[in-house]
Write a protein that binds this DNA or RNA. Structure first.
Lengths: 149, 149
DNA sequence: TTTAATGCCTACTAATATACTCGGAATTAC
DNA sequence: GTAATTCCGAGTATATTAGTAGGCATTAAA
């Protein structure tokens, strides 16, 4: 049960925007270079995030991307769900409707899938981009961000 | 981030064996029919579980499969990991070695993946097949299992 | 001792998703 | 005007998934 690279790359890109929040737009190329992601591929991912309202763009020279909200207002869960869809281990627990299958009301495995789903979402919804930045800075108090790469 | 049908079908099959535990072997066909799974496909999954020591088989007429241990000694986590591999949202947190990538020691996203991994495993390792049987019986105290199908 | 019921094994396959690549049009700072 | 950038649609190689197919091996029961 793996996340695709969409979620992985997307969160790395968002971290990059978060740690540079308030310092003007970052170009796609800058983000891709610093996070070792294919530029063209990241372009598609960031387009998805732009359409979902997580990032804003400025076109033209010196343009780039910034977070649409401050890092403490964006959770890991929001980012991953935009890129990967609902975080559910099986389709029948994407939402709580009992109508997804004729056994859903008394399916013993479905209870298990719901518990997994809820625990994943609880984790990702409780971590903000700001938390990630704080964690990073706590681990590297003496280094400037330039040395991150 | 979905489980494949291997994990889903496998757990359904194991539930079937658990609720019939102590009553002799169940044939592949019986399990497949009751759980609406392709017989040939289930055969491959149950072969994996047999090799992993979760079920035992009896060949020949009147043969079939039984759990190798009692339902309270088999967790959902054991079943899913045998069929799906390690439950980790990304490869770099399958184990805790820092050597998987050159940034692993200070990668801010890796911390997130570890938290997701741990929360999933905590859930699945705390649920046994007996728990699933108990849940099922609690929901259907007045019905014999014959009506489950 | 035959036969039917069963498990065991290897190989094949259609459909889908993934993780990109490619080329070019539109926009804007300098 | 030009270079730097975002925006957009299309194409593609590879891997995975979710099976299917066919036959051999084993054993209980008639």
């Amino acid at each position: 049960m793996r996340l695709s690279t969409k979620g992985q790359y997307g969160l790395r890109a968002m971290f990059e925007l978060a740690i540079n929040y308030g310092e003007g737009p970052l170009s796609l190329k800058t983000i891709a270079d610093r996070q070792y992601i294919s530029e063209h591929y990241l372009e598609q991912l960031i387009a998805t995030m732009r359409k979902a309202g997580l990032v804003s763009s400025t076109r033209g020279a010196q343009g780039g991307y910034v977070l649409s909200r401050s890092p403490e207002e964006i959770t890991v869960g929001q980012v991953i769900r935009v890129l990967e869809g609902p975080l559910a281990p099986v389709e029948c627990v994407i939402d709580d409707e009992e109508s997804v299958c004729d056994r859903s009301g008394y399916c013993p495995t479905r209870i298990v899938w719901k518990k997994i789903r809820d625990s994943i979402n609880q984790v990702v919804d409780s971590i903000t981009l700001q938390d990630m930045v704080d964690d990073y800075r706590k681990m590297h108090p003496d280094e400037s961000y330039m040395f991150y790469i």
